[in-house]
């Protein structure tokens, strides 16, 4: 397939603190194709957000730094691109929406100011065209009273409305890739569903590829085509949503799926994966998941498994003979 838009290969991002180097992302590979929705799943602190910030070139630096690997957008390596080049790409080719709609909009500028700015940065529209495009975008994301909204300030909007504005802003220049970093985490359930529906709708209409970063497997099942499961800075399993949910290979993925609450199940307590995510960099030998794994073998403590497979890849000796 040659419709690859974004290719991350061997990406390693570390934070350099007083305690030394902390590898937040430790060699991950994945690709995003045109019009595809890829889910990036994992617990808090597994490196999902750092991956997205690395792609955008928005790592807080110092202390964050890309120490290895490449990020290809189309055929261009952008992992160490100049700031001026990244500014052209940001918002125009690769856009991003964030977890916190309540604080992601600037409180002292109107919705119109902020939306128009996003458009103006990457196009040359007249004042009237800007106004029209803004109204069109707000309507596209399902916001009523678009014209009046342009003159309002973020504090006059609800969380769901603000997230819609964020989506409108991200979509304003028809990006090829949209990175959504837990866009629904801060919203209540009904609004969550609406926002997810909206994103699926935009994906179908505009063919924008979406990287959906989440810790909620329900979200993945509902909207993604493919999914990559991250654990402690590495991808442990990758495949189509159907494959992963029906035939999970890695014990961690199995654990995640088992711990989804089931309405029809009468069990008193939910399944949990024992232990917690190891501190990045604390395990240097063997499989990172070994200390928490139910199926741990001697080999797992000695050797580090590779991510192997064709369409369905996993990083586990159980499936690698």
């Amino acid at each position: 397939m040659n419709d690859t838009l974004l290719k991350v290969s061997g990406l390693r991002t570390s934070f350099f603190t007083d305690d030394g180097e902390i590898p937040a992302v430790n060699g991950i590979d994945f690709t995003v194709h045109e019009g595809e929705i890829l889910g990036l799943v994992g617990e808090s602190g597994c490196g999902k957000s750092v991956t997205s910030l690395s792609i955008m070139g928005l790592l807080p630096s110092p202390p964050g730094k890309i120490v290895g690997g490449h990020i290809f957008y189309k055929d261009e390596d952008i992992s160490h691109a100049k700031e001026s080049r990244m500014r052209q790409l940001r918002g125009n080719d690769i856009a991003m929406i964030f977890q916190e709609p309540m604080t992601s909009l600037n409180p002292v500028f109107t919705i119109g100011d902020q939306l128009k700015e996003a458009i103006r940065l990457h196009s040359h529209l007249s004042k009237k065209e800007l106004e029209e495009r803004s109204i069109e975008l707000l309507k596209q994301v399902g916001l009523p009273r678009a014209k009046e909204l342009l003159k309002e300030y973020p504090h006059e909007l609800s969380g769901g409305m603000r997230q819609r504005v964020m989506i409108a802003m991200a979509m304003s220049c028809n990006p090829k890739v949209l990175i959504a970093d837990e866009p629904t985490t801060a919203l209540d359930v009904t609004i969550q569903a609406q926002i997810l529906d909206l994103m699926v709708k935009l994906n179908k209409e505009t063919h924008t590829a979406i990287i959906m970063i989440t810790h909620d497997l329900g979200v993945v099942a509902q909207m993604c085509h493919r999914v990559a499961v991250m654990y402690s800075g590495k991808i442990v399993e990758e495949g189509t949503v159907k494959e992963i949910f029906n035939r999970p290979q890695h014990p961690y993925t199995k654990g995640l799926i088992e711990s989804i609450p089931d309405l029809h199940d009468k069990k008193d307590s939910l399944y949990t994966i024992k232990g917690s995510v190891p501190k990045p960099g604390s395990i240097t030998r063997g499989c990172l998941f070994a200390p928490r794994c139910e199926f741990v073998m001697d080999k797992c403590l000695e050797q580090t498994p590779e991510l192997l497979g064709e369409e369905h890849k996993s990083r586990c000796f159980l499936h690698q003979g």
Partner: peptide, 14 residues
């Protein structure tokens, strides 16, 4: 340090 500054950077602003 706030989120909306990150948003502005994500838009490609100088």
């Amino acid at each position: 340090k706030s989120d909306y500054i990150r948003t502005a950077k994500a838009k490609g602003q100088k």
